[in-house]
Structure formats: C-alpha cells, structure tokens
Write a protein that binds this DNA or RNA. Structure first.
Length: 249
DNA sequence: AGACAGGGGTAGG
DNA sequence: CCTACCCCTGTC
C-alpha cells in the first residue's frame, strides 16, 4: 500500500482501492463494501477473539497497547510470492522485489491520479531472467517453480483442507517451510490458528514464557497452538508487534 | 571509501 | 544442529 495525503492506496492484483479512517467511519473508494469487509476481516468476532487469546498479563498489555490491530485477508497468490521474497530479507527489500516484479510482469493500472503496476497472475511469472532482475537472488528459482505449481484452483482447494493438511500442501512447494506456510495460511486464507514463528516471535516467546531459555521453533509452535487456541494467529500478531517495538535491535 | 554483518527462512549437509 | 544462499542496507 502507499499513503498519498491522508488516503491509503491498496493494490490487489489488477485493481486499486483507497481507504481512510475518519473518527466514526471507514471511508473507501474503488471496491464494494463486501470486498472491504472481507479484506480487512471485519466480519470476525473481534471482541470474542481478544477475550479468547487474553491468557495472561503479558499478552493483555500487548492487546491494550495495540487494540484495533487486525489481520487482513490478502490475495493468496500475492501473499505466497511476497513471502517467498521474505526469507533472509527485510521489509524495504521485499517491497523493492514486489515493485520490480510488478513492473516487469504487470500492466499499468490507476485509480484517480494514482498509478501502479498490477501484480502478475499465477502462470505469468514465467521468465527466470526477469525474476532475477527484480533482485530476488536465490529466491528467484522458488518464484519460478511456484509460478508453475500454483493456480487459482490450487489456492482455492487449500481452503477446504484442515489447517495441518493445508500447511503440509504448501510446504511441498520449494522455498516454503513452516514459517512461510503459516504466514500464507494466516494472512490470506483465514486460518486463524496459524502461529508463524520468526526470529521476533522466538525472542519474545522465550522471554515471556520460557524464562529466556532457548526453545526450538517446533516447540514454540506447539506452545502457541495449545496455549492460545483457535485464534492463536491473533495472539501472534499482538506479540509480534509488541516484540518489534519494544525489543528493537 | 571499502569491508563487513545481518536481515520477518529454507534446503541440504 | 549448522551453514550457504542473493542482495540491500546500516555500521565501523
């Protein structure tokens, strides 16, 4: 997304919409209300979720501080490619990769005066050299393969599976391990029980719940699922943003 | 200025 | 469990 004046312009595949929060309303243009509700997951029972994950004073303070934090339902294909770009990278670099991929493979689109390149569809990221030119490095081969393996139907079919089955199916794609699979499931496919463990989650969980002892990612993952339950992904997001803003490296 | 480390991981040893 | 992997960026 890009902020222009007080509007946020958000690109989803080949369309752009814009939103801004006024005190009492969410204002938007370019999409239907139904799409907006879906995209920002405004149909979720927010207060019930917060009650369910509020297990102790640590997460309680994270929830208090970041109240209003939501988990969007991003386009799954965009999400998958974005997270393939994310390994051993950082936000500015991932943003650069995605912009360059869109510029190379997408087409120019606009809303009002705002111009952007669309995100290529599954099957359209079919030129390895171009993917490499987007500065994706060792991730280029994963993007190329994912492009040939993944279709809209494949992504759709994941929704019908259990969390465990869907995760295993995603893990069969080269470049997708536990963390990236969980991110795709949580941020685009509505699997709220997914609990991605990255370096920040590892740090904060060890600190808050394991007396600073080193714990394997596998064990941390099991802890998250058991301790926070069906909406563990929301707990993950509150703890994650809390960790990033309080343990800043 | 140029070298160096490390970043929202994964695969392969 | 350890390390290389591409590339960008911040630091010394």
């Amino acid at each position: 997304m890009s902020k222009v004046e007080d509007w946020y312009y958000i690109t989803v595949r080949d369309r752009i919409f814009k939103v801004r929060q006024s005190p009492a309303y969410l204002e938007f243009d370019g999409v239907s209300k139904e799409f907006l509700m879906y995209y920002f997951a405004l149909d979720e029972p927010y207060s019930t979720i917060l009650t369910q994950i509020n297990k102790d004073p640590h997460i309680n303070s994270a929830i208090k501080r970041y109240y209003g934090l939501r988990i969007i339902r991003q386009d799954p294909w965009e999400c998958l490619i974005s997270f393939l770009c994310s390994s051993a990278a950082n936000i500015p670099k991932i943003t650069l990769n995605l912009e360059m991929l869109s510029r190379a493979f997408g087409k120019k689109i606009e809303l009002n005066e705002f111009e952007q390149y669309s995100f290529p569809n599954p099957g359209e990221l079919n030129n390895y050299e171009q993917i490499l030119l987007a500065k994706t490095g060792f991730r280029a081969k994963y993007i190329k393969i994912a492009n040939s393996l993944v279709s809209e139907d494949f992504l759709k079919s994941l929704r019908k599976l259990s969390y465990g089955e869907a995760k295993q199916t995603l893990r069969n794609i080269p470049g997708i391990g536990d963390k990236i699979a969980d991110c795709i499931l949580l941020f685009s496919l509505g699997f709220t029980e997914a609990f991605p463990i990255d370096t920040w989650m590892k740090k904060i969980l060890q600190k808050l719940y394991f007396k600073n002892k080193v714990i394997s990612n596998k064990e941390l993952s099991a802890f998250g699922a058991k301790y926070f339950g069906k909406y563990a992904g929301y707990a993950q997001q509150f703890l994650y943003i809390f960790a990033r803003n309080s343990m800043a490296a």
